[in-house]
Nucleic acid binder design. Structure first.
Lengths: 99, 99
DNA sequence: TTCTTTGTTCGTAATATACCGAACAAATGT
DNA sequence: ACATTTGTTCGGTATATTACGAACAAAGAA
């Protein structure tokens, strides 16, 4: 199975991370979580000028992209950076910029 | 004029760059241009599996985001990285990941 | 059990993105 | 002047994104 791909898997992956980071709200969340350990989405709802359902969607996108992870800490959910993928993204972007 | 902003200008800017990078085609172009000096869009049309009009739109987005710049070299247009903004983006992402 | 808290999912609407081919514009070549 | 090359813009369509409030689900508190 010969695939003549012009776009590499790495580029696809980097683009996927970039897309997830491509919104101010999500950037805000990522920066917050990368600095402090974790947070609850309730905290974010208070700080941010959006409905909780909207925030939920943004968090889902970040989760789907693998950049954050949620841990149930009833009755709330504690969100943290997904350190493994965060590191991967860090590396991908570093490679992109340092080339 | 007191503005209670939760999202910083820096985060907006980083998100804008990230959004522009959030597509495989655009990531391909950015990586190519960051490595070599410049290229012509005709070269890209041959390599990439998209119509030239579609490519033109992607290039426009990268230009609007300030990541690349086009220089007329008739009858073609030579595209290069916008080094100044590329550096800014590099810095913004480095700060994001290193915090 | 019933109420409250917390966050997701649903339904919906407005806007944005991605893509194509056709038409167009600008400049060079014949 | 006319044809060719190169890339943008236009018109259209399909899909994705962003946003909201309402409804829902899960789990602890009264």
């Amino acid at each position: 199975m010969v695939k003549k791909e012009t776009i590499t898997e790495k580029q696809e992956k980097t683009a996927r991370y970039a897309k997830a980071m491509g919104h101010p709200i999500r950037m805000y969340v990522l920066e917050l979580l990368s600095k402090q350990s974790c947070c609850y989405s309730g905290d974010l709802t208070e700080e941010l000028p959006i409905a909780k359902s909207t925030l939920s969607q943004h968090l889902k996108e970040l989760k789907d992209a693998g950049l954050i992870q949620g841990e149930i800490e009833a009755p709330r959910i504690k969100y943290c950076i997904n350190r493994e993928n965060w590191k991967e993204a860090q590396l991908l972007f570093r490679e992109l910029f340092e080339s």
